[in-house]
Amino acid sequence: MARGLQTDAAVVRPETPRWTLALGAWLLGCAPGAPRNGDGAVHDASARFPVVVHRPPSLSSIEVDSDAGRVAIPCENCHSLFRENPPALPARVEELRGPHAGMRFAHGAVPCASCHERTDATRLHLATGEVLPMTEAMSLCRQCHGPQARDYDHGSHGGMRGYWDRSRGPRARNHCVDCHDPHAPHFPRFQPMPPPRDTAWLRSAPHG
């Protein structure tokens, strides 16, 4: 994590993240640790450490079985092969063929082309037609999910690590796709950490 005295950015800018759909990679503990700046004694109050949005480690909507278990395949593995002549986007998810066939889609009644470029699925576009690289996906999310984007900007949506006091250290933030699969964004249900066992323990204590 680059540490430097940058000017405060009011709006968080994603820094060239590569995409991932490996849902909840962060949840599973793959995220880099919190930045620590034990030695950073910055006394200039106007100086601010940056807020860095977490870069998802790799991108894939495809997972395959391998000796090491389920492995996500980066998009570029395939899409770089037909950069010159990209396959056209189907109208509906059900029409997907090839490696993407059978992909689960649950993101409202949105057609593929609402977000993906019709001629190149590895690129995105805003409602205005402006083309975006995958790395700018958060700008695409926020055009529909305004309240969430606003809360994110004000630190009340989306996980973070690091310093509350940015005059003393930087902060790392989650990317939308760290938690939300863009094709099925609803947060999935999963088993929580174990329930409290304080009272059971006390009852089992010796010399009772």
Binding site: T199, L202, P206, H207, G208
Partner: peptide
Amino acid sequence: AGQNAWGMATTGLSDH
């Protein structure tokens, strides 16, 4: 004396 040696876990009490 035992209660002090082993702690008050020797009672039936809890944080509740």
